Amino acid sequence: MAFTSANGARFGEAWEALTALVSAEGSAVEPFAAMLAGAGSATRDLADAAHCWCMLHARHPGVLEHAQGRAEHPVVEAWLGEAATGFTEERAGVVRLVAAAGPLPSTPGQAESETAITGQRHALDMLASSDRAGVAIGSAMALVLDWPAIRHVLDAGARRLGLQVVESALPLARDSATVVAALAETPAFERAMLFGAGQTLAQHRALWQLLEARADARRHHR
């Protein structure tokens, strides 16, 4: 993933801990995500992923905008501003993909799925709005660092539908690493940052697991 190029002792232990967390618990290690990105995945499963990730992250305000309201450090404000601007383009891409994919694939238990995703959105909003120093930026960092793996699947869907795939405008890894190095001056802040990141990644894992369950439900409902 892109952020690994910025991983190193010069950015401090907090950055190493954060990238290790994303590597171990992020979307890149989710088996269903890897399956979806493969050539043999069903188009309806890719369409379902686009719709569900759109429900989770394509609304405004989202994680990055909520975190902006908690920024008290100029470096954080600048990074979040860049990240929020870049993610506006990511949202637009997801919306275009959903429009091209057509209606949400018919799936048993749709109401329950929508309720689950609504709960996940609420959990993410709470993390990104936390008053505990470190939690909001940890949540924002986890979204930015995990997004390339999520987008890998979304890009597979875009290519399947003949859409153009554009380069991400999210902050570069070295810029994110610099922010973490500037902020994580105390063990308490680092713990809070890793908590926010870990909880955000947990919501992402939960969505991949929901997508897998939905795909299984469709296969058995034929």
Rank of each mutant, 00 (worst) to 15 (best):
T118C: 06
R96N: 03
M1A: 08
F195R: 02
V95E: 08
W53L: 06
M55Q: 13
E16I: 15
L207V: 05
L201H: 08
A78H: 08
V180L: 07
E167S: 14
G109Y: 05
S41W: 00
P103T: 03
R70L: 07
P148A: 12
A173C: 09
N7R: 15
S176I: 09
S113T: 13
F3A: 00
L183N: 01
W53D: 03
A83R: 10
A2P: 14
G196Y: 02
V76L: 15
E112S: 12
V63H: 01
F189S: 00
G38N: 06
R218N: 07
L211D: 00
L163E: 15
V144S: 11
R121I: 10
L172G: 15
E82S: 12
F3N: 00
A78E: 12
E30L: 04
A184P: 05
G102R: 01
A158K: 14
Q110Y: 12
G8T: 12
A101I: 06
E190F: 03
G26K: 08
V95F: 01
R174I: 07
A123P: 03
T19L: 02
S139A: 15
P61Y: 01
A78D: 14
S168G: 10
L207F: 03
A101C: 11
V153C: 10
A92T: 13
A28I: 12
M55N: 11
A83S: 15
A28H: 00
A78L: 11
W208I: 08
